[in-house]
């Protein structure tokens, strides 16, 4: 192998990568937080005895889980505007595609967690006069969250990685900036390796954090 490594392309353009990193982080936080929040609502709709709530949410979940996420992103950029008659920026299209996709997966996680709690927890809460929503907030969801933390962490990590797909729509996130550098300077090895390392450094700690959180919460099992 007589390839001459030259990481100066990375060091000299680190600012561009850093900007990309910020956009990636932004996408990650918005899609993960928004997706999880919306996921709770969809899980509740899925569990509702009212069919006009449970049926559409079932369809929603199945649609997002059974089509490629790349198609979803592209669809929100190119097809969705035709439906709503309003052009979206690539960033918004990605937030929609990735966020809604995440909400579908989170909904299934939350639904599983809620079902796995015994009826007794609802009744214990109701017996002291709690309303449905109070019981959900104070008794049910905290336990669901604890039980489902490993699954939720997986999802969050997945979103972090999937955010790189936004480069397809030219959202100037980490992957896009990297590909731009790599093709401008013909240094794919250095640039892409650096990208991988940055993604790793970004995502690995979140797994550690969740492990730590799990241990901390396990006390009240």
């Amino acid at each position: 192998m007589d390839y001459q490594f030259d990481f100066s392309v990375v060091t000299q353009n680190f600012g561009a990568l850093l900007q990309g990193l910020l956009v990636t982080a932004e996408l990650w936080v918005i899609c993960a937080a928004g997706g999880a929040t919306l996921g709770v609502c969809i899980a509740l709709a899925r569990l509702s005895p009212r069919r006009w709530l449970s049926l559409p949410s079932l369809v929603y979940v199945q649609l997002f889980r059974n089509t490629p996420v790349l198609i979803q992103l592209i669809w929100f950029y190119y097809a969705f505007p035709i439906v709503v008659g309003q052009q979206l920026t690539p960033f918004v299209a990605v937030v929609l595609g990735l966020g809604l996709n995440t909400s579908a997966y989170c909904a299934e996680i939350f639904r599983g967690g809620i079902i796995s709690l015994t009826r007794g927890q609802w009744e214990g809460a109701k017996a002291i006069g709690m309303s449905q929503s109070m019981a959900l907030r104070r008794v049910i969801m905290p336990q669901v969250f604890r039980r489902m933390l490993p699954a939720l962490t997986n999802r969050v990590i997945e979103v972090g990685k999937m955010s790189s797909l936004a480069s397809v729509l030219s959202v100037p996130e980490l992957m896009y900036q990297g590909r731009l550098l790599s093709s401008t300077f013909y240094r794919p090895f250095e640039v892409i390796t650096t990208l991988a390392i940055i993604y790793f450094l970004l995502i690995f700690p979140s797994g550690l954090f969740s492990r730590w959180l799990e241990v901390r919460m396990a006390r009240g099992k």
Binding site: E123, G124, K126, S131, Q143, G220
Partner: peptide
């Protein structure tokens, strides 16, 4: 629902399976 919550706060219940909240002390 409001009325039922008020009633349940006035009529306490102790269950066979305790139904304590495991995530609280």
């Amino acid at each position: 629902e409001r009325e039922l919550c008020q009633v349940r706060a006035r009529v306490g219940m102790v269950f066979q399976q305790f139904n304590l909240f495991p995530h609280m002390t």
